[in-house]
Design a protein around this nucleic acid. Sequence first.
DNA 1: CGGTAATCGAGACGGTACGTCGCGTCTTCGA
DNA 2: TCGAAGACGCGACGTACCGTCTCGATTACCG
Lengths: 209, 209, 209, 209
Amino acid sequence: MTSSSRAVGRPRVPNLDERVLDAARTVYGDRGWSGFTVDEVAKRAGVGKGSLYLRWPNKAALLVDAVRSAAPSVGNINLGNLELDLREFARQWMAFAQSIEGLMTSRLLMDRQSNKELAEVIGELDYPDYIRATRALVRRAVERGEIDPGITPTLIADLVAGAITTHVRSTPPGLAQVAHTESYLTQLVNTVLRGVGYRNPSPEDSPSP
Amino acid sequence: MTSSSRAVGRPRVPNLDERVLDAARTVYGDRGWSGFTVDEVAKRAGVGKGSLYLRWPNKAALLVDAVRSAAPSVGNINLGNLELDLREFARQWMAFAQSIEGLMTSRLLMDRQSNKELAEVIGELDYPDYIRATRALVRRAVERGEIDPGITPTLIADLVAGAITTHVRSTPPGLAQVAHTESYLTQLVNTVLRGVGYRNPSPEDSPSP
Amino acid sequence: MTSSSRAVGRPRVPNLDERVLDAARTVYGDRGWSGFTVDEVAKRAGVGKGSLYLRWPNKAALLVDAVRSAAPSVGNINLGNLELDLREFARQWMAFAQSIEGLMTSRLLMDRQSNKELAEVIGELDYPDYIRATRALVRRAVERGEIDPGITPTLIADLVAGAITTHVRSTPPGLAQVAHTESYLTQLVNTVLRGVGYRNPSPEDSPSP
Amino acid sequence: MTSSSRAVGRPRVPNLDERVLDAARTVYGDRGWSGFTVDEVAKRAGVGKGSLYLRWPNKAALLVDAVRSAAPSVGNINLGNLELDLREFARQWMAFAQSIEGLMTSRLLMDRQSNKELAEVIGELDYPDYIRATRALVRRAVERGEIDPGITPTLIADLVAGAITTHVRSTPPGLAQVAHTESYLTQLVNTVLRGVGYRNPSPEDSPSP
DNA sequence: CGGTAATCGAGACGGTACGTCGCGTCTTCGA
DNA sequence: TCGAAGACGCGACGTACCGTCTCGATTACCG
């Protein structure tokens, strides 16, 4: 049908992409951004620089791709009620925000504010698809009668995702503070639920009645 | 005197620092970290690179200094009750998030996640001092009995500031949507207030019950 | 007076040029054109590539300069009569034609035939200054009454230089054939002298009277 | 039949060689050795690089073949006496020197001086076959008693061809100076004839003694 | 009031990585 | 079986930037 892939000339080696992405992740993990060298990645992947630049326009794009392909974004969530759904969303988003993929995505979203060409290229990045994910989540909650129909889905997504992102970004990179994480998420989700007037049909660990 | 070896030789030009910091902010705002070049900053400030390295040990330190010295942050807010305080804070933060300084601060906090040199220089950046600003604000609300003492001040700050930042960043640069802003803030603040169990003791601009 | 050299900024290291040119000659001598690498030249000269490209626009220009600066072109010749002058000119030109400098010069003269921009840059290259050298030489011969005034100086230069150049170019690069050289030059010069009706006032080793 | 394993599969395209050689000449004529790219030649000939390397082992061999197969060289000349022969040879060589083929041949002879691969491939290029052409010419002149037997045929060829080549190459590309050409050739040939002691036995277009 | 010493703008310096280009080889599909 | 298209590993090119250095020209103070 829409065979945009040309069937002419030597086909690209299929697993080459993955070899390069693997090498990129290794190098980035070992040496960080300042030691993230295209030559090094190419050498470690056993690949010529030419083949590499046939696929990615520059080393930033390569890194973004390497990171993105390793950590999937936020998936569909449907656990039965808004409380569980939101808690799971928060957990996934926290992981995303702490990942390099999330970092890169944020950077792209910011750079487009001042870079016109970038803005056009980025278009509808995956980032705002967290909105899509939560929109369905909120709609179901309304249908179940858990919250009022007047609640803006965007607001809930902004609150949860925004608080988490801000929290993570404010934390210096060294401290993982895993222990602190879970209770923070619980408190956050509970607060948001109360804020939107959540009435849970099957009480689980909600605040006092 | 405590002058170990000072006061000899030509004194440093006083406003040179500020000229450089201004130029640094401009360049970083325009082109981001990858376009943040020492030569460019020096040229735009009309300053020799030598004088520049006389003051900052490397370009990361310079950038951090530039951003830090520009961040107006959030001033002290005390309007009588939490509702007014939070609304004012939201307004200020919205302005900050949309400003160049806010953009730069966000960028800097992100770049440090992947840039070792930056992370070392930044340390405890001023960004989290929005927490300090809100901490007092929440403490007073507790004292006035408007909210429960168990509420974490950090969480409130994260919610309001985070939702706003995310909202602004998700918006494509073209759409200013000023009209939409005020109602968004109102809805946001109301939701947060409800979430933390706010009960206003002295009704001000709400109709009598 | 015409101080085109700027007196601002750090002055260029004076002997750096010569260090680079030396290294260039060494590398070219060791490895030939295909092994003549800019990185290698820079490394062997202990010089950054940047400084190198500050002085020469590309590696061809560097090589030309390296070669040119080692072998001066044809100098002024004045030995008393046309026979001696011409013989000396032939010898010098033979050396020039066999040198890499001569090679490069020839190449430039040819490339300008098909390259408009090159033609403008080259302008009056040093090559045609062999005409200047011989013009004076022939003029003096006419003044001494050794040859007729109707003889075109250009023709004599074309004959001697052209025959030598053609002879050298036709010879494969391996064979130096030094032995053959001197007698060839003698025969060549004698033929040309006879061709222009040379009457030697002080017979030396001219052909039969 | 003698078909051991032939006549099976697609037969080779016959004029493919010539298409490639044409393209090679065009590219080399336009851009010289440094711009002589295999990819460019293949593209311009509408030929795959594979087919190209099926016929020539490397690009040097291809180039030599291209130039060699185009050089019209100098045909057999036999007009009755040396004067007429030499004048005709001069005219032909002048045309050759001004032609694209002549330019390419000269270039090739030069490039081999600095390019090892080229030198190995070229070996005894056809260029010196102008010597063969003139050798017969001079031999007949000796047999007719027009010049002394001691004259080296090579020298005459070098003088005439060399002077013409040098003259043409020294001329900037803009000036065609066609008018000047014929008289230059006459003067040149006359000088060379006098130089080798030419005495024409059967006057043809000169007035009676 | 003239010497001394630090600072200024300017820009060259040694390195290192970037992204591009070309060679000669290879691998596919269509003719 | 051949041919076109073009991807592949390799390696050099010319550019950009960092952080350091060297220049002549200021500009204070200190003796």
